[in-house]
Simulated assay, not measured.
Amino acid sequence: MVRSKSDLVWIPVFAILVIFAVPWFLWGVDDVVAGLPVWVWWHVGWMGLCALVFYRFTGGAWDRLMGVDVEGGRN
C-alpha cells in the first residue's frame, strides 16, 4: 500500500493527542473553575478535540490507513 504525504500527517497528530492526554503541566495546580478542578476541564476539552480529530480521520484516511475497502469488503 502506498501512503500519501497527507496520510503520514496522521502519525504525529495521534502521537500529540496521546502525549497531551495526561495534563502533566497541570500537576500540582489546585485551581478550581465552576466547581471543578482545572485538570477536569482540560480532559473535557481534550476529549472534545480528540473527537473532532477522529471524526476528520474517519472522513478521509480511515479507509486507506485501516485497510478497509470502501466498496464494502476488507483488503
Score class of each variant (00 low, 15 high):
16 I>H: 00
27 W>F: 15
4 S>M: 12
59 G>S: 00
10 W>V: 09
72 G>P: 05
11 I>A: 10
16 I>R: 01
1 M>T: 05
62 W>K: 05
46 W>Y: 15
42 W>Q: 00
11 I>L: 14
3 R>T: 11
25 F>M: 14
49 L>C: 08
60 G>P: 00
70 V>T: 11
10 W>E: 06
71 E>C: 01
2 V>S: 04
25 F>W: 15
1 M>I: 05
15 A>W: 01
70 V>I: 13
51 A>C: 06
7 D>V: 12
63 D>I: 00
75 N>T: 10
39 W>C: 04
58 T>W: 02
26 L>W: 09
41 W>Q: 07
68 V>M: 10
14 F>P: 03
62 W>S: 03
13 V>S: 06
23 P>C: 13
38 V>L: 14
66 M>T: 09
43 H>W: 12
17 L>S: 06
68 V>T: 11
27 W>H: 12
55 Y>G: 00
2 V>G: 01
46 W>C: 06
72 G>W: 06
36 L>A: 11
15 A>V: 11
3 R>L: 15
17 L>R: 05
30 D>E: 07
34 A>G: 02
21 A>H: 12
75 N>C: 04
37 P>Y: 11
14 F>T: 03
24 W>T: 14
64 R>F: 02
40 V>R: 03
54 F>H: 02
2 V>T: 07
68 V>S: 01
58 T>D: 02
48 G>S: 06
22 V>S: 05
58 T>A: 04
17 L>I: 06
58 T>H: 02
29 V>S: 13
30 D>C: 00
47 M>T: 11
48 G>R: 03
9 V>A: 14
61 A>E: 08
55 Y>D: 00
57 F>H: 03
5 K>Q: 08
28 G>V: 07
55 Y>T: 02
56 R>I: 00
32 V>N: 06
74 R>Y: 09
